[in-house]
């Protein structure tokens, strides 16, 4: 990893975009990376479109300006695409990962996007199945690890397990569900042929 990798998360207030960005960075740090994770600064309102960001690097990161050209964009809620330009600043070789039951081709058509790589995964369905609630942010982590290739999959699963076990010591079923959701999303995320 020569350059800094920048990631943008789109979600709605309460969907866990910020939490996902922090979780991913925390995990990347445990695996030896230098990291930054920050939400879109401002008042937080349930349901309103929000953004969160990650920076990852093998070297110390000193810059503290905003992220305008992320290599990877994740969309936690596909309904956002009607009102927010989720592809803004996405470079031609960038990647867009959308939580949807649709195919990457359908999303490309909807967005009218000419370049960049598009991936889709039905994180909401996976979340409902494995965790019992629609919290798409953890399965999206699995998709991100697969698409980005930034982190070692096995190490990432192990580290996340340890962190969740610490956080949900009294609810082991939550840990199991989340880990399964990440694994399923990792396997099921699909790109264009």
């Amino acid at each position: 990893m020569e350059k800094i990798v920048e990631i943008r998360w789109h979600g709605r207030g309460g969907q866990g975009a910020k939490t996902a960005a922090l979780l991913f960075a925390d995990c990347a740090m445990s695996l030896g990376k230098y990291i930054q994770a920050f939400p879109e600064y401002g008042p937080e309102r349930m349901g309103a479109p929000v953004q969160a960001f990650d920076r990852l690097s093998d070297h110390p990161i000193t810059l503290h300006c905003g992220i305008t050209n992320p290599q990877i964009v994740l969309v936690l809620d596909p309904t956002l695409m009607a009102t927010v330009d989720v592809t803004q600043g996405l470079p031609a070789d960038g990647s867009l990962i959308v939580n949807t039951s649709k195919s990457p081709q359908e999303i490309r058509k909807e967005l009218g996007l000419k370049n960049a790589k598009i991936y889709t995964v039905d994180a909401s369905a996976i979340s409902k199945d494995k965790i019992g609630r629609d919290i798409p942010n953890t399965p999206m982590l699995g998709a991100l690890v697969k698409v980005s290739g930034l982190l070692d999959y096995d190490q990432m699963i192990k580290d996340t397990e340890v962190k969740l076990e610490k956080k949900f010591a009294h609810k082991p079923e939550i840990v199991k569900g989340n880990i399964e959701a990440i694994k399923t999303a990792y396997d099921k995320v699909k790109g264009e042929k």
Binding site: M29, Y34, I35, Q36, F38, Y41
Partner: peptide, 12 residues
Amino acid sequence: TDGFIISHCMER
């Protein structure tokens, strides 16, 4: 620290 830029930015 610089508000939000540092106060709310997670780093190593």
